[in-house]
Write a protein that binds this DNA or RNA. Structure first.
Lengths: 234, 234
DNA sequence: CGTGCGTTTGAGTGAATTCAACGGCTGTGG
DNA sequence: CCACAGCCGTTGAATTCACTCAAACGCACG
């Protein structure tokens, strides 16, 4: 079950954004600050952005494409703990060593900033620290939500939840263009690729979704999907 | 599979710690600040500290005992996303509504502080914000680690990982006094109570652990346990 | 037109679940 | 002191859902 043999890390710098513009005026948001300080980089499909146990040198923000945060076990099993979509900031951890690796799901562009410079700038603006804290809490919330899936849900419930989550995060009304492969979905949901495939075709047979092409999914009955996954009580 | 029918929420205030002592001197740590501002409360076994969808009014720190953070599905399935042990701070989220409920695992004492007062005080000391941010990152790290278990590990690996994690967090050298029931363990690891029981007795037969009484577990072969759970590659 | 990759589908297996019964401990009350 | 109930944990037998192994399909690309 060993997946990709580490596609060549084809990453190239594209332009060179203007550096911190003279004035040390407060940055209204983390996003703005990254835009001001960041360098745009392009990563090819399946290339590694950083690896497990590597020193955490940079902070990243997804511009387009998608990034997966994953960990590989010695026997080839892989767990993807999160997908980062455009707008998401990632790569920041307490440790200065990454515990998971980050890879580009498809061809992906990110902004990168030196961790040291980033933290120095952030520290200067208490508001930014609060924002980053809030962001981390949000990631934690998402991780906790994901545990619900992984813990005690069957394949249908996982897939349903996944599709609804993705539709919401991509902000698309029912027509999802999947950035990731079936294998990625499987490793995210704790299933095998075969089970993901079977479950999707079953959902299509039941009329809850349509799959015009494999990387595109149309939510036909969001209510029904919500009911299957939303077996959460108040 | 509906567990406890909500034991009476027997919570009582014990003493009344000194309020913010005159001077607004910087608090060196979040822990100190909670100790200074907090009120000691006692919660009986299985009583609810706060419930899902309740407004987040307080911040808590475990003094002794243990707390579980859980969510219940309408059909009775339960997922425990974390256990909080003495020293852990919990109850702080971006939302001002709790997404999970928190219950005392055994008889438990916690310090509680009004969320508003807490945040006001924290905001006054940038260092505290950084500390809390680091704490949240740590919780995130733990959540991600937990996902590895829930995603693609078998029962033995989950139990082994759980025992090692608990031994480390409790700081006990091999002799674990379990604060929680088998059902709690099952709901934390995404297994059934029967599977937990069977797996534990199997590990005992194999000589990796000893179970003098059900709530006490002795790690006999940590290396072997580490190998089973540690099938993580570098 | 073949090759390679990602996806789908089928058949058989297996690990964990479900259903069910039993054992041990604790506290209560006769 | 014993009897009994209630809870928690263990054990057994049968079932099931997702997994493994295997093959075929479709599509893109050289």
């Amino acid at each position: 079950m060993l997946h990709w043999q580490g596609a060549p890390a084809t990453a190239e710098v594209v332009p060179l954004r203007a550096k911190t513009k003279g004035t040390k005026a407060a940055h209204p948001s983390v996003s703005d600050m990254l835009s001001a300080m960041g360098v745009r980089m392009r990563y090819a499909r399946n290339s590694e952005i950083y690896g497990e146990d590597e020193p955490a040198e940079f902070v990243y923000k997804v511009l387009n494409g998608a990034v997966r945060l994953s960990k590989l076990m010695s026997d080839g099993r892989r767990q993807i703990s999160a997908f980062y979509l455009p707008g998401d900031v990632f790569g920041l951890e307490t440790d200065d060593t990454h515990l998971f690796s980050a890879e580009a799901v498809g061809d992906t562009e990110v902004l990168i900033v030196k961790r040291g410079a980033f933290l120095a700038e952030v520290t200067r603006h208490p508001e930014l620290v609060r924002q980053l804290w809030a962001q981390t809490m949000d990631h934690l919330r998402r991780a906790q939500h994901h545990m619900l899936l992984l813990g005690r849900k069957n394949a249908q419930e996982r897939i349903a939840a996944f599709l609804l989550e993705l539709a919401e995060r991509l902000g698309c009304n029912g027509k999802i263009r999947l950035p990731m492969s079936r294998q990625d979905i499987a490793d995210y949901l704790g299933l095998t690729i075969e089970t993901v495939s079977r479950t999707l075709t079953q959902l299509e047979r039941d009329g809850l979704i349509a799959i015009p092409v494999s990387r595109q999914i149309v939510l036909r009955d969001r209510t029904a999907l919500g009911i299957m996954h939303g077996s959460l009580a108040a």
